[in-house]
Design a protein around this nucleic acid. Structure first.
Length: 746
DNA sequence: GACCTGCTGCGGGGTG
């Protein structure tokens, strides 16, 4: 018997029959490995990592369903946890199909599922449940009495798109929920088995610790062989942005308040014209870093098609669109080949939109991990390559600006990201060690679940058994005292902790269930139909223009009482404003950018204009010593610091300099400090020998409250969190030491 | 200079 045959033989008979019916002629290697690992042992957890469309879902569910088939009803047997409702809806169909010959019901449980369906599951717990972390949270506090029957014999928990949880508030939240859920198992010490699925694991050890915190070595890693990977076709195009060209090319439709935008307008036009040619009759996804730009590119491309007599084949998909519009875009992509969708991260994960033969990325990607995910959306069919085209706008080098300002940073970052992705590297997730906001969330939720808990029990559940293990007892009691002072918790006469008035109010709100902070948004309505949403704090006024859902609008009425803005179609091409912040770049990306400046070889995937710009940038860097020198004196009383150390450590350095009373200009790579070189060196020394403490730096960070429940904590507690997770103190100290011993500092 | 995610329970009134 071959390896494949013996793995197949391990599956339950109805599962085997269903595979025959579905026309499967073989199992993929990761499926064989997963079946053997899951059905061959009773305890180990599984981490299944393979490229998109390699059959990870089936690798997990074939063995999980086979085992579940033999268990008796009366309890949910397997739980699937997904990060998106849309993904759960897609996976529901796939799991139901695999269950074709099994007598196992498959249930969805998320915010869009009818109460009646939820009630049906609670009345007869059985089968497989597909759920979001937030709905699991709601089960724990709203259905406490039923948990014992629902999950008493739960066998397996499958976490899809595991990378989306690792290192985030939502991941910490989920980790806490899973520990709390285990208490309802009839054998809590054995509990259920964990399976994690992902295409983009930056650090296997972090993933292992997430799946089995007490025994990470018992997580079996099932990895797709590298030979099974796909051929990659790459091209990177660059467009120069210059003032002179735009003065002649902007027309009345393009009036915009921002000068920065009008400068970019003609380059965006050239980029769009190329894009229309590149996407010609291909199904494509084009990722854009901002929603305002995304709408602009869709409009420019459709306009281009209209003028050339081509069909207007460009659609949009992002988080500020009405759900109906997003579902319509998904359905059209699936049903009609040859369409292109401009999207944000909404389509980064596995929502089914049919086959995509090309992926575009406008602007340098936020991270290498995100670039990898995005590229994985193309070439899903066997034998088809992955095609990726990147497009970067590069400001024209102004002769009178400084050498640092003239560096084409975004082009360098795009090249560095591609190089790192091709080398197989992606950013490792960095879980927070001291996320007190999520701790507060779980304190409130745990008390709501149990009605009353002693402080010690609470500490035991969350910080000994649960995921908040780095939080010591003294810090935990400071948090509780703070919550007590704000009426969130109070001590009952019997000594247990119960929710106070404020705590009850927070817990009763429908916003409570997520651990992350949601934006306050208002609906944009046209003739009573929802087009999308805009952030409430920068809402357009009547008479102003905006683009949304691939159309141009003007605002006729802003109705705050009903949280709505009424719009009508308009001619003007004006961008809507969405709220935003700045991304953190990993130090390895900065380091690779510097190496690219220093190297001579030309990446083969650069188009000619991009090649010319890289040659120019290398010449500039060499003349100014930007790639080699770390501390550069620039005129009297001003020093350039070039650590190439990633944004978090660079921000930590900048804070240390600001504490000296100096003015610090923070560039994306490098700092300009109003201080003499010798003074900069002595400030670096106090970091290098750690006489400047992390807590002292944290005091100077503003704003302090940025996570969801930070408002319930005092500044002192927030500083503890910032010192641990908001800054990168360890790296900054290392970088300071390196800057001091670097031979080429002048 | 950014992107994304998620979400009760219950009471009252109407209909078949």
């Amino acid at each position: 018997m071959t390896e494949v045959e013996s793995a197949f033989a391990l599956l339950a008979e109805p599962v085997q029959r269903q595979l025959y019916r579905m026309g499967w002629r073989e199992l993929r290697q990761i499926q064989v490995d997963a079946i053997r690992a899951y059905l061959g042992s009773e305890e180990d957890a599984l981490l299944i990592t393979a490229e998109t469309a390699a059959g990870k879902t089936e690798a997990a569910f074939l063995p999980v369903l086979s085992k579940a088939a033999a268990a008796r009803p009366g309890s949910v047997r397997a739980l699937y946890i997904g990060p998106l409702k849309a993904l759960i809806n897609d996976q529901m169909r796939r799991v139901e199909e695999l269950c074709g010959y099994l007598e196992l019901p498959v249930h969805r449980w998320h915010g869009d599922v009818a109460q009646s369906q939820k009630a049906a599951l609670v009345a007869a717990p059985d089968g497989v449940v597909l759920i979001t972390p937030e709905s699991l949270e709601s089960l724990l506090i709203n259905r406490t009495r039923q948990l014992g029957t629902l999950f008493s014999r739960l066998q397996a928990v499958v976490i899809d798109e595991l990378h989306a949880f690792l290192g985030s508030e939502r991941g910490l939240h989920l980790a806490s929920l899973l520990v709390r859920l285990r208490r309802y198992h009839e054998q809590p010490s054995r509990g259920f088995r964990m399976l994690g699925l992902s295409a983009t694991i930056g650090d296997v050890e972090v993933a292992r610790r997430f799946l089995m915190p007490d025994a990470p070595e018992r997580v079996k890693v099932i990895k797709q062989g590298s030979s099974e990977g796909k051929v990659v076709q790459l091209r990177l195009h660059a467009y120069e942005v210059s003032k002179e060209q735009d003065a002649t090319e902007t027309d009345e439709e393009d009036e915009d308040d921002s000068e920065a935008f009008s400068m970019r307008r003609s380059a965006m036009g050239r980029l769009s014209a190329d894009l229309v040619a590149h996407c010609d009759r291909k199904s494509a996804l084009v990722f854009v870093n901002s929603k305002a730009d995304l709408e602009m590119y869709a409009d420019l491309c459709n306009e281009h098609c209209k003028q050339s007599g081509l069909p207007e084949n460009f659609l949009v998909h992002h988080g500020s669109l009405a759900r109906e519009h997003r579902e319509d875009t998904e359905a059209r992509m699936k049903g009609t080949p040859g369409l292109t969708t401009f999207c944000s991260s909404t389509l980064e994960m596995g929502i089914d939109i049919g086959n995509v033969s090309m992926v575009g990325q406008i602007g340098a990607p936020f991270s290498v991990a995100s670039l990898k995910q995005r590229m994985g959306r193309s070439g899903r069919r066997d034998g088809e390559p992955r095609r990726l085209r990147m497009y970067v706008l590069v400001p024209k080098l102004e002769p009178n600006s400084s050498a640092l300002e003239r560096l084409p940073v975004e082009l360098l970052r795009a090249v560095a990201s591609v190089e790192l992705m091709l080398s197989g590297w992606v950013e490792p997730p960095t879980p927070a060690s001291t996320d007190l906001s999520t701790l507060v969330h779980q304190v409130i939720s745990s008390i709501a679940e149990c009605a009353s808990l002693s402080a010690l029990e609470l500490y035991q559940r969350l910080c000994i058994e649960g995921p908040f293990r780095q939080i010591e007892k003294s810090l935990f009691s400071r948090v509780l005292r703070c919550l007590g002072a704000k009426d969130v918790v109070e001590q009952s006469p019997s000594g247990g902790l119960i929710l106070g008035l404020e705590g009850e109010r927070i817990r009763a709100s429908k916003e409570f269930y997520a651990a992350f902070l949601g934006k306050v948004e208002v609906a944009v309505l046209y003739q009573g139909n929802k087009v999308g949403t805009l952030p409430i704090d920068i809402l357009p006024q009547p008479g102003e223009f905006l683009m949304l859902a691939g159309k141009r609008w003007s605002v006729v009425e802003a109705d705050f009482a009903h949280s709505a803005v009424q719009v009508v179609p308009a001619r003007r091409r004006r961008r809507a404003k969405f709220a935003g912040s700045v991304a953190d770049i990993h130090y390895r990306v900065h380091e690779r950018m510097r190496e690219i400046l220093e190297e001579d070889s030309m990446p083969v995937y650069l188009a000619s204009e991009a090649q010319r710009m890289l040659v120019e940038a290398r010449k500039l860097a060499r003349e100014a010593g930007l790639g080699q020198r770390r501390l550069v004196k620039v005129g009297e009383g001003s020093t350039l610091v070039l650590p190439w150390c990633g944004s978090k450590a660079q921000r930590t350095l900048a804070t240390a300099f600001k504490m000296q009373g100096w003015t610090v200009i923070e560039h994306s790579v490098g700092l300009e400090v109003t201080a003499e070189l010798s003074d900069v060196r002595s400030a670096l020394r106090s970091l290098a020998d750690r006489t400047l403490a992390s807590e002292a730096l944290a005091e100077h960070i503003q704003p302090k409250a940025c996570r969801k429940f930070d408002e319930l904590l005092d500044d002192e507690l927030l500083d503890v969190g910032i010192a641990h997770d908001g800054l990168d103190y360890g790296s900054a100290c290392e970088v300071a030491r390196m800057l001091l011993i670097h031979p080429l500092y002048l």
